[in-house]
Design a protein around this nucleic acid. Structure first.
Length: 361
DNA sequence: TATGCGTGGGA
DNA sequence: TTCCCAAGCAT
């Protein structure tokens, strides 16, 4: 398949089937950028409601730049990979301060912003400004790997730069944005990971994998190592007013910058198996000791609630939840604070804690 | 280069 | 149920 035949077949196909997505309504680089960050490692259907809400609240670079991080985080709650929005917020502030609110038009300037990698630069600059820069995401890696039977691991940086070179040679300078989106759209809807729909593919004629029947074994990707397991004891501490004790997580690492219920390494392996009937056993003494230390005082009561398992990308939390009734004398210090019921909506939590709140409501 | 970083959906 | 993710980036 000639280069021109390939690009025009792909563009023709895209212009026929392209989905009507909210971030495709304008050429404004700001909403395109927001959508690209939300779409990282995240499904389109998941992103749509978040995008609509976020754009309504922060419709411009200046609006987002002026916002408090705590508030911005709340609009990301549930999307995951929270460093994305912290970086995005910092980057938008930089655009406001350094570029007068106009998103830069060069690869180097855009790439220098926090949270903006080679994919996001290519996506924003090609879609919004029409610059002929490749935007190689997982979809494009898969499509190109099949089209040309690339057998190396697509997780390798070397493979990605090879694919960037291939796309650079194919990308039509007058339709760069559509071309990049067409490659991604094809990967997302037709050239899908398992059981690709090759009979619907506009590039099937020129596809080396399809012509050799190898479309299902490509692209090659090494399997990930299994997540480690952490057993934790979680306390929902209530004071006399019914406020709940929460704490802010560190600004780096898992769920950074979010709030959480206090939790601790399980004192013994057996705690996770603890049930209400066992609370009077020797194990409960260790739970009482940790709660006592947390409150600097002996709790009035501790009740076992239930166990939770929460799966992150690289770690699994096995949690044992206790409700603790405090004595009302405890004054928390940073990073701890009391949260009243009406304050709940101001704080951002990981979904594991929202699940706990929902169960207890 | 390999690993850390979330979540909810589909096979 | 279990696995594999889905439009990546930082370190």
């Amino acid at each position: 398949m000639e280069k021109l035949a390939l690009t025009s077949a792909l563009l023709d196909w895209y212009r026929t089937v392209r989905r009507d997505l909210p971030w495709r309504k304008s050429q404004d680089p700001y909403p395109i950028w927001i959508s690209e960050v939300m779409l990282q490692q995240t499904r389109v259907e998941t992103v749509i409601p978040y995008f609509d809400r976020f754009m309504k609240q922060y419709p411009t670079v200046d609006a987002l730049a002026a916002a408090q991080e705590e508030d911005v985080l709340k609009y990301w709650e549930g999307l995951g990979y929270y460093s994305r929005v912290r970086n995005l917020h910092a980057a938008v502030r930089e655009v406001a301060a350094k570029y007068g609110g106009e998103i830069p038009r060069t690869y180097e300037e855009m790439r220098a912003l926090p949270g903006v990698g080679p994919y996001t630069v290519g996506a924003v600059l090609s879609i919004a400004y029409g610059l002929p820069i490749p935007a190689v995401d997982g979809n494009v890696l898969r499509v190109i790997a099949r089209l040309f039977v690339l057998e190396e691991d697509i997780a390798h940086a070397r493979t990605r730069s090879k694919v960037e070179i291939i796309v650079s040679e194919l990308i039509p300078s007058e339709f760069a944005g559509d071309f990049n989106q067409a490659l991604m759209e094809l990967g997302a809807t037709v050239c899908i990971p398992r059981t690709p729909k090759c009979t619907e593919c506009p590039l099937a004629v020129g596809c080396a994998a399809y012509s050799s029947g190898r479309q299902s074994e490509l692209p090659y990707k090494k399997s990930k190592k299994p997540p480690r397991i952490e057993e934790r004891v979680v306390f929902l501490v209530r004071n006399a007013k019914g406020d709940v004790l929460i704490r802010k997580r560190p600004d780096k690492g898992l769920l950074s910058g979010l709030w959480e219920l206090p939790h601790f390494s399980a004192p013994t392996e057996g705690v996770f198996q603890l049930t209400e009937s066992h609370l009077t056993s020797e194990r409960s003494g260790e739970v009482w000791a940790v709660a006592h230390e947390l409150l600097s005082d002996a709790p009035r009561q501790i009740s076992f609630v239930r166990n939770y398992t929460h799966v992150f990308s690289h770690v699994i939390w096995k949690l044992t939840l206790f409700v603790v009734e405090g004595r009302g004398t405890f004054i928390p210090q940073s990073p701890y604070t009391w949260m009243s019921a009406s304050q709940r909506e101001q704080y951002t939590f990981g979904q594991v804690f929202n699940k706990i709140f929902a169960d207890l409501d």
